[in-house]
């Protein structure tokens, strides 16, 4: 088809083309994630100097900030795949959306946990209801809701479409939730402490942060592609089973 030649990535919208590509990409991105993380951690822990205000605890930033970024990027990506699967009924888009969700939820959890562990030495408490932590917590609920709805519906077609719709509604709501939480925070004059990131960042810190963020991306790509492969095979199994039954 001429269509496939003009838009080469459309080729990978079909599972049979996607699968071998993923087979080649997964080891590359896994290796990349490992290398980037090692260099990033070296920069972050050995080269970057101690912060005169926060001491060493600021080094949690190198995992906390990338995890928080990933949690939001992955939700956006999930919503985009949800739109594609809902509007154009591309099966691979549904598989990708569903494959992204657990990893996104995991990064949200990591961001929350590392935020709490960073908060303890910095603010003297594990948890404060600050705008960022609170909206991150709500993001975790959005992920759980998506996965919960998907697995609660027995019919796969309906599950994928209902969950995709929910993801889109959630994505529309994310900025509203975020701004309402900020507003709430200013109303109640809660401690609006911000991790003083930009202020005293050295080059080493910046590169460490960047490398760790890239490592998280590479990890996400590898794991999500692997999960998508597993889903393709599992669905193929069901289809094969059904076709065998209908033959009899």
């Amino acid at each position: 088809m001429s269509m496939t030649r003009r838009i080469p990535w459309m080729k990978y919208a079909s599972a049979s083309n996607f699968y071998p590509l993923a087979d080649r990409l997964v080891p590359i991105f896994m290796g990349l994630a490992l290398v980037l993380a090692v260099i990033g951690l070296y920069l972050g822990f050995v080269v970057a100097p101690i912060d005169y205000q926060q001491g060493n605890s600021y080094r949690i930033m190198f995992i906390h900030v990338p995890a928080a970024w990933m949690s939001m990027f992955i939700y956006l990506l999930l919503a985009m795949y949800a739109i594609i699967s809902l509007v154009w009924r591309v099966k691979m888009a549904d598989i990708m959306a569903y494959s992204l969700a657990p990893t996104g939820a995991m990064f949200t959890f990591i961001a929350l946990l590392t935020g709490a562990l960073w908060g303890r030495p910095t603010w003297g408490t594990y948890w404060i209801w600050d705008a960022r932590l609170t909206s991150e917590l709500l993001l975790l609920f959005l992920y759980l809701g998506y996965m919960g709805l998907y697995s609660a519906i027995p019919d796969r077609q309906r599950a994928s479409r209902a969950a995709a719709f929910l993801a889109i509604v959630g994505a529309v709501n994310v900025p509203i939730i975020y701004f309402s939480v900020i507003w709430w925070n200013t109303l109640h004059q809660g401690s609006s402490f911000s991790f003083s990131e930009g202020a005293s960042m050295t080059d080493a810190m910046l590169y460490a942060l960047l490398l760790m963020a890239l490592a998280c991306w590479a990890y996400t790509i590898a794991v999500v592609l692997r999960r998508a492969q597993a889903l393709i095979l599992e669905r193929k199994k069901v289809a094969l089973w059904a076709s065998q039954i209908s033959k009899k």
């Binding site: 959005l142 809701g145 709501n173 939730i177």
Partner: peptide, 10 residues
Amino acid sequence: TLLLLPLYVP
């Protein structure tokens, strides 16, 4: 409840 509570926060 799980689906709606985040949407209800604002």
